[in-house]
Write a protein that binds this DNA or RNA. Structure first.
Length: 490
RNA sequence: GGCCCCUUAGCUCAAUUGGCAGAGCAAUUGACUCUUAAUCAAUAGGUUGAUGGUUCGAUUCCAUCAGGGGUCACCA
């Protein structure tokens, strides 16, 4: 507000009248609050007095309790809170004057000795005060914190200052990504970065964002998946590769979708989809060990056991089971069409057979897959990049991992037959003509790479944001992305 | 994009079929040298998201718009 801004501006002016620099350049802390707390919390008041340990530290003022000639404040260093105590007789006249110009939200440094109050709270008795930065706006309320979701996401820094749980979520996100990365490095994978701007969008069924390169005067597409580039690396003989990076899909926003999101994709030559289901279980086990000692997550009102091995069900069989249509009828486009029209007349009829099967899966199966479950053997018609099944020509060696009703991972034995791949792309083009505007385009440069010969390989993508949701219990993807996309205001 | 809900002080929230817009925290002034949601006294702070309409009178009822949340669709 204008008035509070003015008041604080006045205080800043008074600082320079005292000869205090409003924006100094640096400050030396001897310890972070966490270290101070860890080192001294078990010492008695007497022991601390004896030790007379002098330290310096810095933080943002979250609360001030002033009693005229003395004051307590709580500082926050972004991680922990620590109380400081300022007494008139213990500081210089200038520092005591400075103390009266401080506002909640200001950042200060202090030098002093560690002690415990009568209520046994570890605190710093201040000997020297250093002004570090002014806050011109009042902070959100200390007791209720910042509740308004819109403000929390638009002004995430305020959320981080007042709501400690938020910091915990992003610390956990960082740990999770670090663990995933270590998992693949430990197994000899090379981490790579492939283009974010693609001349031809590909690798997933999704609508892309379009951008433009001025010097070349060409349109480019923000990538929907790195898949087709990573497979070029397999052709090049990179035996084990992975990439953790952003993908962009021009689609709606929901509890589980943000237009830009983080995926890891990983590939390994001479492996198939069975190997990768096993590897996925190993990866989650490794994450459990570090982030989930109990092995169980609390998801809304349910508990989910994250311990492998996970259940495995076949795509067509699980739809058959839930819909009452026999597996053989499910392979009949006419039967499937009739079933949808009869039981779901409100649903617009999908343009292709594959989309109809996906619709039935969404309606009957997806939301019920709470416990970790691999859905396997997806039909060829909806898996244009997967290798055909050894058991049934109509199916592919593909799996998706579902947890808490969310798709977490998608992997398969990679199709490496360039002639077959070209046929699949052409089939996609026909789907596009029938109205499926997410059907993939022919990428001739990718096909050319395959024509040089790609060894058999397995590949997989895992949605990092959703994984973080699971491991933090966050109900919305916005809670695990620092700056989720919102409509710009004003 | 469809449907439902929300928007009141910097923050968290009240306001009686439609009858003077309030509290706590934050802020200002003063008191106070172990407080911790500090306390005590006083003060200030509002175009009730925006624009129209109904009405003697609208935070309240209606319409449109904006932003957000939820849900469905799109989408992994």
């Amino acid at each position: 507000m204008e008035e509070q801004f003015g008041v604080r501006l006045e205080k800043l002016k008074k600082l320079s009248e005292l000869g205090i620099s409003a924006y100094p350049y640096r400050f030396d802390s001897t310890m972070r609050f966490a270290e101070i707390i860890a080192k001294f919390k078990d010492h008695s008041a007497d022991e601390l007095k004896q030790a007379n340990e002098e330290i310096s530290c810095a933080g943002r003022i979250l609360a001030i309790r002033s009693m005229g000639k003395s004051a307590f404040m709580h500082l926050f260093d972004g991680e922990d809170k620590l109380q400081i105590y300022i007494r008139k007789e213990m500081v210089s006249e200038k520092d005591f004057a400075l103390n009266h110009l401080l506002d909640i939200g200001d950042i200060i440094g202090v030098k002093g000795t560690v002690f415990k109050t009568h209520t046994q709270e570890l605190s710093i008795l201040v000997g020297e005060l250093t002004f570090l930065s002014k806050s011109f706006h009042p902070l959100p309320e200390k007791w209720h914190g910042l509740q308004d979701k819109e403000l929390r996401f638009r002004q995430r820094y305020l959320d981080l200052i007042v709501n400690p749980e938020t910091k915990q979520i992003f610390r956990k996100r960082s740990q999770l990504i670090q663990r995933v990365r270590a998992f693949f490095h430990d197994r000899g994978y090379i981490e790579v970065e492939t283009p974010m701007m693609h001349p031809i969008p590909g690798g997933a069924a999704a609508r892309p964002f379009v951008t433009h390169h001025n010097a070349l005067n060409i349109d480019l597409f923000l990538r929907v998946a790195p898949e087709l580039y990573l497979k070029r690396l397999l052709v090049g003989g990179m035996e084990k590769v992975f990439e953790i990076n952003r993908n962009f899909r021009n689609e709606g926003i929901s509890l589980m979708h943000n237009p830009e999101f983080t995926m890891i994709e990983f590939y390994e030559l001479y492996r198939d989809f069975n190997d990768y289901m096993n590897l996925t279980e190993e990866l989650l086990l490794s994450l459990n060990r570090e982030l989930l000692p109990a092995g169980v997550i609390q998801w809304q009102d349910k508990k989910i056991d994250m311990a492998p091995p996970f259940k495995r069900v076949k795509f067509m069989e699980v739809i058959a089971e839930k819909s009452g249509l026999s597996p053989e009828r499910l392979w009949d486009e006419g039967q499937v069409k009739g079933h949808i029209q009869k039981h779901f007349p409100e649903e617009p009829l999908p343009p292709t057979f594959g989309k109809m099967l996906e619709l039935l899966f969404d309606l009957y199966v997806e939301k019920n897959l709470i416990e970790p479950t691999f859905v396997t053997y997806y039909p060829k018609v909806i898996s244009p990049l997967s290798k055909a099944s050894r058991l049934d020509e109509r199916e592919t060696e593909r799996f998706e991992l579902y947890i808490a009703g969310m798709e977490i991972a998608n992997g398969f034995s990679e199709l490496n037959d360039p002639l077959e791949q070209r046929k699949r792309f052409e089939e996609q083009l026909r789907n596009r003509e029938r109205g499926d505007d997410e059907a993939q385009l022919i990428d001739n440069h990718f096909l050319q790479a395959l024509e040089y010969g790609m060894a058999p390989a397995a590949g997989e993508g895992i949605g990092i944001d959703r994984l973080v949701m699971l491991y933090t219990g966050a109900a919305s993807i916005k809670e695990v992305i620092l700056f989720p996309l919102l409509r710009p205001k004003e």
